[in-house]
Amino acid sequence: MKENVTNAFDKLSTYYEHEDIRYSTYNMYYERPAMVNLFPKNLEGLKVLDAGCAAGWYTDYLLSKGAAPTALDISPEMVEATKRRTKGNAEVLCVDLSKELPFESDTFDLIVSSLTLHYLEDWHKTFEEFSRVLTRDGVFIFSVHHPIMDISIQGANCYNDTELLVDHWKRNDELIEVQFYRRPLQDIINTTNQYFSLVQLVEPIPTEQFRELNPTSYQTLMKRPNFLMIKAINSKT
């Protein structure tokens, strides 16, 4: 599984780095506006962990707002893309989020994880580590696939199970196999609450720019959300 994810996103790194509107509408005009809306209003001076940075859009955004981000990704090619985007102004590391993180406890004020956690089967070790490296009352914001979207993918059998699914993303003439895990909403909520205090759950509405670019998909998203965002607080004792 990890090898598949790494290989897939190594191949996808060029598309992520040089965003093509054909493939990036869902990120640019659906996921990112909803995620950024959950961020603290003042990011100046905050130490932020971008957990699953892809090609570094969030890392670069955080830098532009005066934060001090550290970016992680399992894909070496995505790590290099993030380094190029941020021009050496952020620490960028190739790290497996299912393992122990290479940071001292209470290092970060904010953790952001965009469309990453569904590539992990078990969230417990990851959330335990996120809680450890996040300061008390620090903020954890993440987005994942909405289980309502993933249950319709071929291979999904039971809504209440955590299932490994296989999808295929077409980029130009290349078909890239992408594996990820679908889990029910109750597991997403309950696992989050085991390590953090849930503040807000968001099922995003696509922006007007999205509607103008892709009216058919806009109408589909208004009936069935593709993504889910959660904001939580680290209430460790």
Rank of each mutant, 00 (worst) to 15 (best):
V95D: 04
D96L: 10
P40I: 05
S235D: 11
M149V: 09
T82H: 07
A8K: 01
F9Q: 02
M78F: 07
V48E: 01
R182S: 15
R171T: 09
M222K: 14
R85M: 04
S64R: 08
I74T: 03
K125G: 06
R171F: 14
D96G: 11
G66I: 06
Y30H: 11
A51P: 03
Y61C: 04
I176S: 03
L115Q: 05
F210V: 02
I153P: 00
T116A: 12
V92R: 00
L115F: 14
Q209S: 11
A232P: 01
V178A: 03
N7Q: 15
K99Q: 14
E3A: 12
S98R: 10
V79L: 01
P184Y: 12
K2E: 13
V79H: 01
Y58H: 10
E177N: 09
D173P: 12
I189D: 00
L49C: 03
L110F: 05
R32D: 08
L120N: 00
S13A: 15
I74W: 00
E91L: 13
L72K: 02
D73G: 06
C94N: 14
P184H: 12
R211Q: 13
M78S: 06
M149L: 14
V5N: 05
D10I: 02
P147Y: 12
E208H: 13
F130C: 03
E100Y: 06
Q219L: 13
E129K: 06
L213R: 15
E104Q: 14
V36P: 00
I21F: 09
S235T: 15
C94L: 03
T6P: 04
E128K: 13
A34W: 04
D167V: 03
G45T: 02
K236A: 10
N172H: 14
T86M: 05
R84S: 13
S143F: 06
L221P: 00
T216G: 05
L101K: 02
D60Q: 14
C53N: 09
